[in-house]
């Protein structure tokens, strides 16, 4: 067999696109998520997040382009066991009991870890004989996550995982998720439109907007590449203090000018400079559809090939 497996790249998309009857949901997506990353996918509703995750989980077939997991297509033998996916609506068989749902995971997955799955269920104090249909949304999320983690995947894909959990359970479950991922070296890819859910947990970022990737890479590196500058607005016609830098967004409030820029050299001394928070950065990008995209080195497709060459 032609072994193209690549342990350093969890997910790689090249020219990936998906068209539905109503138009393109995703277009020209080329990016890479390195193995071991905890990658948050953010973007407004309808940006194409679920489509991208569905393509990565091989639930959808791409209209164009390719997506590979650990260097190999998803339909290659054994690949299905390496990827776990939890859909946004956390589908489960309502008539099954919790124990039967875990048994489904055990029966259909060769690498099943009952202890890991059971731990998550027990944490929520869910009785094994409870029917799924009688559980709350948050409890069902817990069972869905137990099913995904019990599979012991190398890549765990979660679509809006915590959307229907209370803050306490969310915090606890996120902690469990992160420690399981860290213990097993699992790569995590999760989408959310709640920035607070991701800030502080993710180390990689994927900003999806209007069916395109706009930011991809390490959170630290992306934040470090940007500066939030403010100063007196010189007014129309006067020399722009942000000239020479890549401007993501400029806002004028009264005579005050605030801008998010990617500095391309020395900054004008007239400006007050600070580092943006992740939330400030993402909101600036979402407000400015024309802002140029940014991919860090590790997020570029073919990164490892380039390094090797």
């Amino acid at each position: 067999m032609n072994d193209t497996s690549d342990d350093r790249t969890a997910l790689e998309a090249v020219g990936l696109g998906k068209r539905y009857r109503r138009g393109w949901a995703l277009r020209d997506c080329t990016f890479r998520i390195p193995a071991g990353a905890v990658c948050g996918m953010v973007g407004p509703n309808g940006a194409g997040k679920s489509t991208l995750l569905g393509l990565a989980a091989q639930l959808l077939t791409p209209t164009e382009g390719t997506v590979t997991v650990f260097g190999r297509p998803l339909d290659a033998p054994g690949q299905r066991a390496r990827v776990a996916f939890v859909a946004q609506d956390k589908p489960l068989y309502q008539r099954f009991t919790v124990a039967e749902m875990l048994r489904l995971g055990r029966e259909l997955n060769p690498g099943w870890n009952q202890t890991a799955a059971q731990r998550i269920v027990d944490q929520g104090e869910l009785p094994g004989d409870a029917r799924l249909g009688s559980l709350s949304g948050g409890q069902r999320t817990r069972v869905a996550l137990a099913l995904a983690l019990g599979k012991q995947p190398d890549l765990l894909i979660l679509d809006e995982p915590m959307s229907d959990m209370d803050p306490l359970a969310r915090h606890q479950l996120m902690g469990t998720l992160m420690s399981e991922a860290a213990t097993n070296g699992t790569t995590l890819l999760m989408s959310s439109h709640i920035l607070a859910e991701l800030d502080g947990t993710i180390d990689h970022l994927l900003l999806v907007d209007a069916g395109r990737i706009r930011l991809a890479g390490e959170v630290d590196e992306i934040l470090a590449a940007h500066r939030l500058v403010s100063g007196a607005d010189p007014g129309e016609g006067a020399a722009d203090p942000t000239a020479g830098h890549t401007v993501v967004e400029t806002r004028r409030i009264g005579r005050q000018l605030t801008a998010l820029i990617r500095p391309e050299g020395e900054l004008s001394g007239a400006l007050e400079v600070s580092r943006p928070t992740l939330e400030e950065l993402l909101l600036s990008y979402l407000r400015s559809p024309q802002a140029p995209t940014l991919f860090t080195d590790s997020a570029r497709a073919g990164h490892d090939a380039a390094v090797a060459a």
Binding site: A57, R80, A84, F85, A87, P91, L104, L108, P110
Partner: peptide, 14 residues
């Protein structure tokens, strides 16, 4: 109707 095909088809069996 229940979306469970996404659950089923995410398991290790094809």
């Amino acid at each position: 109707e229940r979306g469970t095909h996404r659950l089923l088809w995410s398991q290790s069996v094809s």
